Simulated assay, not measured.
Amino acid sequence: MTSKCELVKKVDHRSALERDAGRLVNCRERVNFCPLGACALAGTGLPIDSIDAVSDRDFVLEFLAANSIAAVHLSRIGEEWVLWASEEFGFLTPSDSVSTGSSIMPQKKNPDPMELVRGKSARVVGDLMTVLVLCKGLPQAYNRDLQEDKEPLFDSVKAILGMLEGVPFRTSHEIVGRSVALCTTKNCQLGELKLDDLKAVHPVFESDVYEYLGVENAVNKFISYGSTGSEQVKEQLEDWRIQLGISS
């Protein structure tokens, strides 16, 4: 008797990643439909189930589920790198391109990119949980709750791409140095460089880089309590005004 189950002959990480790719391909076959014409509820003469079209978020959930499984696989790979690079195991020594130095132990190589991959997986799984809970208990047809599906969807994609295409710290440091050197040549600030100039330094740059360039943008990225970001400074000033009895 021949079994209907195909014997699993491959047990490496490549096999898991191959299944991840297959899930995304299969996902596209099911979600590649356009609900255009469904209107807000049932305002169309087209022969479609418009109520389901506007209330369904299966396409988001299925995609996020495929992303989450891939993230878990990438996290497991990251964990093995971190474990094997430890002093206790010593199975591998990460190259400079995928490690960073220690601030207190110069001889140490930290597999930081893999630790970040491991950490990002929690974010991707969290995005899936967000939309699952969002859709739980919603009645049929469109509900305004569903507008909250965009942020976790986009966040999941950004996180997965970052896990697959992340730039090591050492490389980032080099990129910044080359960008600054270019600014010196052109006698300009980083924020004044054109995107083509930045891409010539490294293709990792995208248009959103301008949200980070410049003194004001850099300072305002500090959002932790008591930090130097403008909003935090305003809160601290207001707090002291209240404590000192000074009217604003």
Rank of each mutant, 00 (worst) to 15 (best):
G177L: 00
K108Q: 02
M105L: 10
G90E: 08
Y142D: 09
A53N: 13
L244H: 04
K109M: 04
V11H: 13
S3K: 11
A53P: 12
T171V: 13
D112E: 13
L46A: 15
K186Y: 11
N187A: 08
E192R: 05
E79M: 06
R170F: 08
R14Q: 12
N220D: 12
G119K: 01
I48Y: 09
E88R: 12
L74A: 00
A42H: 14
G78N: 03
Y225D: 10
N110G: 12
E151M: 09
A38T: 15
A122M: 08
A181K: 01
V201I: 15
S55G: 11
E231V: 13
V117Q: 00
D208A: 13
D112A: 10
D145G: 02
K158W: 09
N217I: 00
C135D: 01
D12I: 14
A53K: 13
T130R: 01
K108A: 05
K120M: 03
G43H: 04
R76W: 07
P139N: 00
V11D: 14
G37H: 07
S103A: 14
P94M: 11
L138V: 01
T184S: 14
A218D: 03
L164N: 02
I104H: 05
A181Y: 03
D155Y: 10
F169I: 14
N220Q: 05
A71S: 05
S3A: 13
H13W: 13
K10N: 15
A85K: 08
Y212L: 15
E115M: 06
S172K: 03
L195P: 06
F154Q: 03
E148H: 09
I160N: 00
K10R: 15
S156W: 03
G45I: 06
L195E: 00
L17M: 12
M114L: 13
N143T: 07
V209N: 04
L7R: 12
L195M: 01
W84I: 06
E238S: 09
P35Q: 01
L138W: 04
N187M: 08
S102F: 07
S227F: 03
E231H: 11
T228V: 13
K109H: 10
A85E: 09
V167E: 03
A66Y: 12
S55T: 08
